[in-house]
Simulated scan of single mutants.
Amino acid sequence: MIDLRSDTVTQPSKAMRQAMADAAVGDDVYGDDPSVNQLEREAATLSGKEAALFLPTGTQANLVALLTHCQRGEEYIVGQKAHNYMYEAGGAAVLGSIQPQPIDAAEDGTLPLDIVASVIKPDDVHFARTRLLCLENTHNGKVLPLDYLHQAWAFTRKKKLALHMDGARIFNAAVAMKVPLSTLTQYCDTLTICLSKGLGAPVGSLLCGSSEFIKQARRWRKMVGGGMRQAGILAQGAIYALHHNVERLREDHDNTQWLAEQLSGLGVEVIAPGAQTNMLFLRLPANEASQLGPWMKQRGILMNAGPVTRLVTHLDISREDLIRLVDLWREFKGRIATPGSGDGGARTIYG
């Protein structure tokens, strides 16, 4: 199957599997796993932070970050559609008694700082204490501008807030901007990096920050069940991903831009700003949206089709795969009958 649902569906390569099979391991809860220790050192260096922590999932990495930054009854400001507000099962509120203060993101994925300022709570017994601003880079495939990151960093210093970056796809942002990761991460106190999305590792995320922060986060990781033993088998997959699969993200970006051009040529509406990284968002007419997904699945292509459809390229999607997708989309559109005289609407596709 050609799977365009997400970049979480990638399969580890033969070389990655071999690296995992050959991994030197130890008990990571004791700090004895050499592969995990190597991964954490490399991640800290790449991000320009003092230390890093390996966790099984991005959801847990964001949760541990929030639990470390905020005490019970405190608050973080976050995007209304940010992953660590909308798609992580309310973990910070349920498990940490941390209040989210969501606001709408701007079209470019940034959180407008004047609106952020307006929702910071005064020092008053009626309110939760505002402790943290959370940004997401990339956000729905959009790269946060470098000048905005600088402004947000200065803003949080002035307002005495910490700044956490959900950087699940931050390597996509760095590759798109043609800058080292540390150029982006210098403007946050902490960040998470997902290894099992575009980088292609089977499992794992990283939390990066100061040595003292990571020391506290390690305790929270244990509390929420993230302490693993011979985790070096997983860490070696992640190390392979960092060494081999970062720069190749450019191929995904190029493929997505090509796909945007091809589908636009078929009359498909590409939602602005188009393809900045490995995600493409399309707006489909209702009669097409309801039929496209099942029709494509019958022909070997998986996608989450709807009125707004997201297509995601990754290391298991080739240009040839996308050529097939475009050819099938052209066929699909040809099989959608136009509304007929007096028939009350569009017919279903043929066959």
Results as ranks from 00 to 15, higher is better:
residue 221 R to L: 15
residue 263 L to H: 06
residue 221 R to Q: 15
residue 248 R to V: 14
residue 278 N to I: 08
residue 246 V to D: 02
residue 302 L to Y: 11
residue 211 S to N: 09
residue 268 V to A: 03
residue 313 T to D: 02
residue 205 S to L: 02
residue 303 M to V: 14
residue 208 C to F: 02
residue 245 N to I: 01
residue 299 R to C: 05
residue 252 D to G: 14
residue 287 N to Y: 15
residue 292 L to W: 14
residue 232 G to H: 04
residue 254 D to F: 03
residue 246 V to H: 08
residue 198 G to I: 01
residue 262 Q to K: 14
residue 283 R to Q: 12
residue 316 D to L: 05
residue 251 E to D: 12
residue 247 E to L: 12
residue 289 A to I: 09
residue 206 L to V: 08
residue 281 F to D: 06
residue 274 G to W: 09
residue 243 H to A: 15
residue 245 N to E: 09
residue 282 L to G: 10
residue 226 G to L: 09
residue 213 F to R: 07
residue 196 S to K: 01
residue 281 F to I: 10
residue 287 N to E: 15
residue 260 A to H: 07
residue 205 S to C: 14
residue 319 R to D: 02
residue 276 Q to M: 14
residue 279 M to T: 12
residue 229 R to L: 10
residue 230 Q to K: 13
residue 267 G to Q: 08
residue 254 D to T: 07
residue 228 M to T: 00
residue 210 S to L: 04
residue 225 G to R: 04
residue 194 C to D: 07
residue 315 L to E: 04
residue 286 A to S: 14
residue 204 G to C: 04
residue 194 C to P: 00
residue 291 Q to I: 03
residue 218 R to W: 10
residue 195 L to D: 03
residue 257 Q to R: 15
residue 293 G to L: 09
residue 248 R to D: 05
residue 207 L to R: 07
residue 196 S to H: 08
residue 277 T to K: 05
residue 210 S to Y: 05
residue 313 T to L: 12
residue 317 I to P: 10
residue 308 V to R: 12
residue 276 Q to H: 12
residue 223 M to C: 07
residue 213 F to V: 07
residue 219 R to E: 15
residue 307 P to Q: 13
residue 315 L to W: 00
residue 314 H to S: 14
residue 284 L to S: 08
residue 263 L to Y: 09
residue 275 A to E: 06
residue 306 G to M: 06
residue 296 M to E: 05
residue 245 N to H: 13
